[in-house]
Design a binder for these strands. Structure first.
Length: 325
DNA sequence: AAGGACCCCAACCGCGAAGGG
DNA sequence: CCCCTTCGCGGTTGGGGTCCT
């Protein structure tokens, strides 16, 4: 049975010959991509439109990247797949020059096996049951975790700068393919403003320069009370994340702390207004909201991220593996 | 050298969404 | 609305190359 779109035509199937490629290429180059159903007729091909479209998209398109996937591309696929699942077309959009078919094939032939050999379920990215340990370590709160990527402390709220201390500690680098921690440079700065009642208020601003193409605004146990991952499809871009902790003190971090996270696109500033507002309520539940004014951002992906269960992601046995290697 | 097993990936299939009449 | 066509996506297949015995 042929395709419905061209069931009346004599259809050739199977691999494309160089002559057919040449005909299709010549036709698209002179007429562009219009109605695929009429392409075979005008291009002189005994194929159905669907087959022509596929051949163009997966093989003839001039902007296709050839050759094997790089380690970076592989990591991007794994990271996005963890959030989106088998949405190959969405994943391929983050890999310039790669098609959904290519990504899917690479996943099925290579990555899947690699994850399984690491004891990970390729669908859920969690440990396979055969690799689970009987006791599962769960860490759900920054204050319970001595290995937080940074620990903030203040002896006296609103104290002068010299009386306020802060401590940064870094986590050991987790194994590849499990948890990706951005390389972070931290600088901090105190700012003093005047509150409504005339009292001076202190603000401590942390600037985090993240050097990975994939920026993790991590789970509570890593960095802040959120669990959002953002991906950038330009591999060479640095992201700047600015964390403003208003009325900073050790106490206010524990309860009712309002943390605002803003992400700036350092390269062209078009993401300047892209921000994520993260609030941790007193009961420990996390609420998130986001507002964006950039046209240079993948809203579809962000929506997936914000609505995914990764938002309330907690440490599970996969993380346990990551920290106990 | 032969042939069976395995693997990769290009291409196909079917379904749902979108759009136009 | 409904119907039909077209497009796009994800799952699946099978041909051909490679590896192994």
């Amino acid at each position: 049975m042929g395709h419905r779109c061209c069931s009346k035509q004599k259809i050739k199937r199977g691999l494309w010959s160089p002559e057919e490629d040449e005909k299709l290429l010549r036709y698209i180059n002179t007429h562009g991509q219009k109605s695929w159903s009429s392409v075979p007729k005008f291009a002189g091909l005994q194929r159905c439109g669907k087959s022509c479209r596929l051949r163009w998209i997966n093989y003839l398109r001039p902007d296709l990247k050839r050759g094997s996937f790089t380690a970076e591309e592989e990591q991007i696929i794994i990271d996005i797949h963890r959030i989106l699942g088998n949405r190959w077309a969405q994943i391929a959009k983050h890999l310039p020059g790669r098609t959904d078919n290519e990504v899917k094939n690479f996943w099925n032939s290579c990555i899947k096996k690699k994850l399984i050999s690491q004891g990970l379920d390729p669908q859920t990215h969690t440990l396979l049951s055969s690799h689970r340990r009987s006791s599962v370590c769960t860490i759900s709160n920054i204050h319970q975790n001595s290995n937080s990527i940074f620990i903030m402390s203040s002896h006296i709220p609103n104290a002068p700068l010299e009386n306020t201390s802060k401590t940064f500690s870094t986590l050991p680098k987790p194994p590849a393919n499990i948890v990706q921690i951005p390389s972070v440079d931290v600088s901090s700065e105190f700012q003093t403003t005047t509150s409504n009642n005339g009292e001076p208020r202190q603000h401590l601003t942390y600037e985090l320069l993240m050097e990975n193409a994939i920026t993790n605004i991590c789970s509570p146990t890593y960095m802040n009370p959120s669990a959002v991952e953002l991906f950038n499809n330009d591999n060479n871009v640095n992201w700047v994340s600015t964390v403003n902790v208003e009325d900073f003190s050790a106490q206010t971090l524990e309860e009712g702390t309002q943390v605002q996270v803003q992400v700036q696109h350092e390269k062209d500033k078009t993401c300047e207004d892209m921000g994520i507002d993260v609030r941790e309520a007193n009961n420990g539940n996390i609420e998130t909201s986001a507002s964006f004014e950039s046209s240079n951002f993948d809203f579809g992906l962000l929506e997936s991220v914000l609505t995914s269960e990764f938002i309330s992601y907690d440490f599970n046995c996969m993380d346990e593996l990551a920290w106990n290697f």
